[in-house]
Design a protein around this nucleic acid. Structure first.
Length: 504
RNA sequence: GAGGAUGUAGCUCAGUCGGUAGAGCAACGGACUUUUAAUCCGUAGGUCUCGGGUUCGAGCCCCGACAUCCUCACCA
């Protein structure tokens, strides 16, 4: 509804639309088009040493020394504008950097000068000019020709503050990327990390596959799934909560080194460390075991740190994490004793501690109680990086038991800053034992916490023989958090889940 | 799901004791050909998140709703 007097944002937009009209009157397209031959601003800045200063005489007062520099062409978004009479200084930015433009009325000619009057913050322009320095030494493109590439109708956020409201930053991530300090760099670094992981795995001979995201049975982890429906088949389906069971089918099928790096979905709470959809890496290696996976985990993480050009000691939220190899290793019982102060094999003492910290141990399997105490008392204190090994077998239904110690599972979890970053098993390949474990839910365990979901097809696959194997899962978002100094998962996910905006 | 905090101009934020809504940036008009968050003069811009209530009078107090953030729970 238009008001009689344009007010607020409407007035700002009206001013921009008026300039858009003027651009059209100049015979130019305010929405631009193909623009060839421009160089990334970062590369242009690197040509600074090509500028030559004429050594002729003293410079006259007020006049810069005669220089000549390379002719360059760039394109970018206007982020700052300083008008000074018949002269305009503009800072434009692309995804490699930012540079100043010098636009003088006498230097660019009447049409370009008219065009420059129509520039607003946020517009995208192209420039031809000569790379030189101003009197104050600022590297600057002295414009000779201007090209209009896109009008911004909406006003960008305050030029030096960017967006402060975390909701707006996530909802309008495009603005956050333009104006947020280090935001674009952080997401590009995420890409570097993911590329590095793929490179490490390729170098080790693994192949990447794409499993189904729609599952008839949501298996492979203990989590509540999202449900959906297929119309033609009229069946209920789940969005996958893990990659595990299909990758293991591929081990049966002879893909001996296989991984998937993709999205999984869990219908659970949202927190600084949880988003309902997140990126998971799962890797399976035939004829390996959990120790093989430990070495691989170290290679993957060390490679990712190298790829981001960082040293192995990283600052994170006031702490320093030392990623130097090898990472520390502790057994589950050692970590338990150290941080809870209770003997992990003394079930009564563990139960007493559970009672003390408000858990309700009565009627629960002792290993469930132990696991709950571990999560409550121990995990947060594992600054790491530390591999915690040898978990109670009863809480690991997809894991092979230790030879001669059936109560211990060949499993490790990698903890860093209290976060579980990786989880690996020597994979269980005994179909009879797997079937038994699928059907057994431990006493006191909530249904959604249990992996007791029978996947008959998976059992059938195991009956055809899955080679002994090591399997590894890495939470990519959390790893990226640690390698980018991000305290919340929302800083490393481009579009985290938000409630839909109420439409007015 | 529970508790706490927040919501004011396009953006960033003030707003005292309940008494006519404020600043900076952005915008508009003017001056300025080497500025660096340019400067200077002037103008305009508001459903104070929404809905009730108390009051002569509410941005402010009370109740409710919505959204976001934090902590906890669930989880990786």
């Amino acid at each position: 509804m238009a008001k009689e007097d344009p007010t607020g944002g409407a007035a700002l937009e009206a001013a921009r639309r008026e300039k858009l009209r003027k651009i059209q009157q100049l015979g130019l397209d305010p929405w631009g088009g193909r623009f060839d031959g421009h160089a990334p601003i970062g590369q242009v800045r690197a040509r600074e040493d090509e500028i030559t200063v004429e050594p002729v005489g003293e410079c006259e007062t007020g006049k810069p020394p005669e220089q000549s520099g390379p002719k360059v062409r760039v394109a970018g978004r206007i982020v700052l504008q300083r008008k000074k009479g018949k002269l305009i200084f503009i800072d434009i930015r692309d995804w490699t950097g930012q540079i100043q433009l010098f636009i003088g009325q006498n230097q660019v000619g009447p049409t370009n000068w008219e065009l420059a009057q129509c520039f607003d913050l946020g517009d995208i322009i192209g420039v031809d000019g000569e790379l030189k320095r101003t009197k104050t030494g600022e590297l600057t493109i002295f414009a000779e020709d201007l090209h209009f590439l896109c009008k911004a109708l909406a006003t960008p956020p305050a030029k030096h503050h960017g967006l402060a409201d975390p909701e707006l930053r996530q909802r309008m991530r495009y603005l956050d990327l333009i104006h947020g300090e280090g935001v674009l760099e952080r997401f590009l670094r995420r890409t570097q990390i993911v590329q590095s992981i793929r490179g490490t795995l390729a170098a080790e001979g693994f192949v990447e596959v794409e499993g189904p995201t729609l599952h008839a049975i949501a298996g492979g982890a203990a989590a509540r799934p999202f449900t959906t429906h297929h119309n033609a088949l009229d069946i209920m389906l789940y969005l996958r909560i893990a990659l595990e069971l299909h990758l293991k089918r591929l081990l049966v099928g002879g893909i001996e080194r296989v991984y998937e790096l993709g999205r999984v979905y869990r219908n659970e709470g949202i927190s600084p460390r949880h988003n309902p959809e997140f990126t998971m890496l799962e890797v399976y290696q035939a004829y390996g075991d959990y120790r093989t996976m430990m070495d691989l985990t170290e290679k993957i993480i060390a490679g990712a740190i190298r790829a981001t050009g960082q040293a192995p000691r990283l600052a994170w939220g006031g702490a320093e994490i030392d990623f130097s190899l090898p990472f520390a290793r502790k057994t589950y019982d050692e970590a338990f004793a150290e941080h809870s102060g209770v003997d992990p094999n003394d079930a009564a003492a563990v139960a007493a501690l559970a009672e003390e910290i408000g858990l309700e141990p009565a009627g629960k399997h002792p290993d469930v109680v132990k696991s709950e105490v571990f999560e409550a008392k121990v995990e947060d204190r594992l600054a790491g990086p530390v591999f915690v090994t040898d978990y109670p077998a009863s809480i690991c239904p997809l894991t092979k038991r230790k030879a001669g110690q059936p109560e211990i599972a060949e499993r490790f979890e990698l903890f860093i800053q209290g976060m579980e970053v990786a989880n690996a098993y020597t994979e269980l390949n005994d179909p009879d034992l797997q079937e038994e474990l699928f059907s057994k839910q431990l006493a006191g365990q909530a249904e959604e916490d249990s992996m007791a979901k029978m996947d008959r097809d998976f059992i059938r696959a195991l009956r055809h023989g899955m080679p002994p194997a090591g399997g590894l899962g890495i939470g990519i978002d959390r790893l990226v958090m640690l390698l980018t100094g991000s305290q919340t998962i929302r800083e490393v996910i481009l579009f985290p889940l938000l409630r839909p905006e109420i439409s007015g």
